[in-house]
Design a protein around this nucleic acid. Structure first.
Lengths: 248, 248
DNA sequence: CAGTGGTCTAGACCACGAA
DNA sequence: TCGTGGTCTAGACCACTGC
């Protein structure tokens, strides 16, 4: 009995580190406080920097930390709940939204989106491509692309501006005049494309929650929306569960 | 004009690798096919194994690859859509569910869950803790924990078995007898706890989508459910969007 | 047992932000 | 300019799977 039972299944170092640091965050640090830099933390725990980084990456993935190049690692505030409810079907842009930086072009949609829309890829029906940014509490939390086949908004006059923010608003206005017959939604994990990452102030490849919505009107898919939410800072809520919160 | 414009913002190697391999998956490989091992791939692309692994990790995160220790890296099938719709409020276990491996204990809930339930942490009201596994297409896609305060199911007789699967079914049966007044839902990114990871056939820390649901009845929170979905293989769908699919 | 992916090390250099 | 996190290397050993 001189030695106690050895761990038969040794826990990886980074996993243990994550636990230790996670507990320290709760007790020794407050939100926004800056941690020692990675080289010092690694030395303090007696591990290689790469191992320490593995632990920090996990904590960042869980929304506990925020790391910024050239600045440092800070304690993140609790994730903010952003409402994406489907309980009451509504066109995008309706209600008390906090969308900003509206823009509009006539670019052709990616093949995957064209498949969702009922557009004929051969006929090349024009598709309005809107780009919006969702800003909550002063932070950009989502980049959205809304694809609207020209056929869905026939009454749109060319006078409304050929492109840009004014055009985008005109498309949204026309869309809201239609009768929304239903909508569909899916959520999955993805990694940020370069352009979205830039607008969300993240590095390319950062984990994001991709929310894809189909809007039905007139017996067809009238619009498709692909919204990319920062996975580190956002908790998507449905049904007004704004205060719902589970610490991981 | 002897030299073309140098890349002013050189793309990281792993990012470029991810693109190259991702395209190769579309053209040169079919679902289920096994890739060359990491050491060979790294050599073939002329990078260190760690760099190659960074690219593979991203592709796995996006659900394009599946890696298993001791086996190899295979091309993953498209993510399966699992329905978690909130359009019609219903108690867990109702409808055509595919939940399995039901179990039930009387363990005290984590503090975060107790906060959501209206239980008095001091009085220590007993809480039924159910554990279930959601199996779709023969694969475990989610591990769920359902917390039901004893006060929510007062008519539960002790005769129904003190614990285990039979007890779990009894709790669910009693729950369904109540009038469900509403429900709440939130989705966020997390990393798999050790026990969940084991049941989902993943390593601890694997990315998961955590779905937290509150069930309201009798003017209080009658139950709280925390479901952990494999983020690599699942796409959460709302409103019957089973066929909704966007390639990333 | 051999071969796979998972963990870990001890360095190096780069890109970015702030002073 | 300096300090930060981000990328990258070339190794090593370990844990798991299947033969």
């Amino acid at each position: 009995m001189g030695t106690t039972q050895l761990e038969s299944v040794p826990e990886p170092k980074y996993w243990h580190l994550k636990t230790v640091i996670g507990e320290a965050l709760d007790t020794d640090f407050s939100v926004g406080e800056i941690l020692p830099n990675e080289r010092e933390l690694a030395a303090r725990f007696g591990v290689a920097r790469a191992t320490l980084r593995q632990a920090l990456e996990q904590l960042e993935l869980e929304g506990r930390l925020q790391r910024r190049r050239g600045v440092g690692t800070t304690v993140a505030p609790p994730r903010m709940g952003v409402d994406v409810s489907t309980t009451q079907a509504q066109w995008p842009g309706a209600g008390e939204d906090t969308w900003e930086s509206v823009d509009c072009t006539a670019a052709a949609p990616p093949a995957a989106v064209a498949r969702l829309l009922d557009v004929d890829t051969e006929a090349a029906e024009p598709v309005h491509t809107l780009r919006r940014l969702r800003v909550t509490n002063g932070q950009a939390v989502a980049a959205e692309q809304l694809y609207v086949p020209a056929g869905s908004v026939p009454d749109l006059t060319a006078i409304d501006a050929p492109s840009g923010a004014a055009r985008a608003r005109a498309v949204l206005r026309e869309l809201r005049r239609l009768t929304l017959e239903g909508q569909d939604r899916a959520v999955e994990l993805g990694s940020a494309r370069a352009d979205d990452a830039k607008e969300l102030d993240r590095l390319p490849g950062a984990p994001v929650l991709v929310v894809t919505t189909r809007y039905f009107s007139g017996g067809r898919t009238a619009a498709v929306c692909v919204a990319t939410y920062r996975a580190d800072t956002c908790r998507l809520t449905f049904g007004g569960a704004g205060d719902l919160q589970i610490a991981s």
